[in-house]
Design a protein around this nucleic acid. Sequence first.
RNA 1: GGGGGAAUUCCAGAGCGGUCAAAUGGGGCAGACUGUAAAUCUGUUGUCACUGACUUCGGUGGUUCGAAUCCACCUUCCCCCA
Length: 377
Amino acid sequence: MFKLLKIEGRARRGQFSCAHGGVVQTPVFMNVGTQAAIKGGVSAFDLREVNCQIELSNTYHLHLRPGDGLIRQMGGLHKFMGWDGPILTDSGGFQVFSLAPLRRIKEEGVYFSSHVDGRKIFMGPEESMQIQSNLGSDIAMAFDECVENPATYEYAKASCERTLRWLERCKREHERLNALPGTINSGQLLFGINQGATFEDLRIWHMEQIAKLDCDGYAIGGLAVGEPTQVMYSIIDAVEPHMPREKPRYLMGVGTPSNIIEAVARGVDFFDCVMPSRNGRHGKLFTWEGTVNILNAKYATDGRPISESCGCPVCKRFSRSYLRHLFKAEETLALRLAVLHNLYFYNELTAKIREALDEGHFQEFRVEYSEKLANRV
RNA sequence: GGGGGAAUUCCAGAGCGGUCAAAUGGGGCAGACUGUAAAUCUGUUGUCACUGACUUCGGUGGUUCGAAUCCACCUUCCCCCA
């Protein structure tokens, strides 16, 4: 399942096998396709083009539309979206945070008012597991509560205790579903999620508890939700020693290129983030020299590619001038090209991190790029 | 030929005597975005010696303490009737 190949400091180079699509090389960035599509007009065959190893979709969103029953009927998520590589499904726990005005949390689970049509939806650990089973993803995430920052100690404590109880229920239900004859998701793995807001003692206590449940991997959730970056790093520093060494670690929803390098340096293996796709749609393009805001007037007659050092299909062919024109003219091609470039960059970023680890010079890599990538070009 | 209407800051378009450097859109310029309610949101957009001053609302000349707003003429455009 997970094999550690090499360790440099706390940084880990590994391999992870999934039911679909073979082996994932880690550290890895998972490309986010919430509704079984990468926003900006990027499809499953484009994901191959940008060297995506593993795709991420969302339980809550696919349950609402088109419905997980429908996807199961259509042969499962892989077939439905035309992606034969590994898929991780997020549990809906993030929607407990992002759709806060539309939900009520109870011990049994969360009552949502659908943001699509207002209808009442209940999602608890069992429901989330059932939906992810129907979707047939390779990795299911436990149903958790992503707590907003800042949170009070009392709230964070009560919440992560409840998230622990939810994980116990997730585990039980996941095992039950996996054992059902004719299940679509045979071999589906389950990752537990660490919570505890910005309180180190809660984080550590929670991590120790969930580690006992012997999940297939462990995620750190509830970070990059408003706290300063240094706080995020210190939480990872505090939690990481308590994470099972031989299991993959996943830092959910993170982050900027330098966040990823810094988290790898702290022992994280998996990442996902909306940033390459969302910022791409908004004209912010990532390069090895820093970020390019392609909307800026200075690029109007710039005949260079987004980045001279990028080998992506967009940079091979199109100029900054053309990209900027497409954005200004509101051509949807602008979004597509920008997202393709950014995903290629993120996938290349983790590829370079792996290469540096393989060759034993990750620390040099980290020093060279952690700062540089935060520049503006 | 006769009658009527309109000209506003990059564009469209409010304003109809002081609270107007002038609403609102659009465009321009810049910023934000971290398990996606986001092709979204925010700021800014006359000039400068910028908590103040100066020049602007087709042109010229008036009325008034005060005019984008009222009057006269001029210029241009639009509509209707011949």
